[in-house]
Amino acid sequence: MSALLRHRLFWPGVVLAGLLLLNVLMTRNFLAIEIKDGHLYGSLVDIARFGAPLILVALGMTLVIATGGIDLSVGSVVAIAGALACLRIGDLNDQNSVGGVLAAVGISLGLAVLLGGWNGFLVAGAGIQPIIATLILMVAGRGLAQLISDGQIITINSGPYKLIGGGYWLTLPFGIIVVLVVLALTAFLTRRLALGLLIEAVGGNAEASRLSGIRARGLLVTVYAFCGLCAGIAGLMISSNVSSADGNNAGLWIELDAILAVVIGGTSLAGGRFSLGGTVLGALIIQTLTTTIYSIGVPPETTLLFKALVVTVVCLLQSPAFRAKVFHRRRRPSASSTASEGKVKVPA
């Protein structure tokens, strides 16, 4: 039991379960999942499906934050990727041609990787603080997206493109499959291969990593480029789901939700240790929260306030210092080591 309590995903798990329970009480058949026309339907499926872009962006953000950085530009990259893909598809003679759509997807993902790599170059090569380096693209990227879409909302009508964000494959929503693939790939690269160790080392102590022979520069560029790729895929999903690209509003503020998801998942903003599972959990909490707000009928003008309250509770529960203060009296002494876990021990 105490091992479970001490697990770093315990409290986010409790919050997610609590939110789901609230929905079960408020909404009839919340947990029901059914297959209609060979497609999976249900509220839980919707949460996963609508949460897919956020999970993707948050995955990339997790690695960036683990290096001790941050990427504010993901929202702009979402908009750019969507706008470029829709522009290319809109120019096709046959919007349903699979080859043409694949080319458009490839080009916009390539651009997303390039933009991420640019962030990485600014951070690692030019030594600009990550928050400033990515702020540049956050602001300029919206303009770039506007430029690509010529200030208009580009609307397209393409079957193959619609699949990415709104389609189904093997009874599952295609977006969920994409998330699972990217998640598996990330887990493989970081945990099976040694990328994770090196990222955590650079985030934990950059100078010590350099003196251990780690090529931090290349690593940072890779990580930021990966973050750009994740944001690009998310951008395609978002624009595909509505069959249009809105340079102004697509992915607006998604960077904040993504950072929040990472933090809720237990990855420290100071860099170092990261948890992919925690990030997915964090993103699901945020998405569930959004769903809950609609389903229990919180008045629209107070949704942000409601969201802020829940997030505050999660963050407080995550804080070892807060837990020690509030729960300590009721715990037996044997459990007190849990509370001191997060404190930095400084040997003399």
């Binding site: 040694a194 160790l197 934990g204 251990s212 780690i214």
Partner: peptide
């Protein structure tokens, strides 16, 4: 400041230079 990666384990700190030399792949 220049040696330890404080948050990592003994094992990870120990193999870090070897892993860095081999590259992450």
């Amino acid at each position: 400041a220049e040696g330890l990666i404080p948050g990592l384990t003994v094992r990870e700190n120990l193999i870090l230079a070897l892993q860095a030399a081999r590259g992450w792949t």
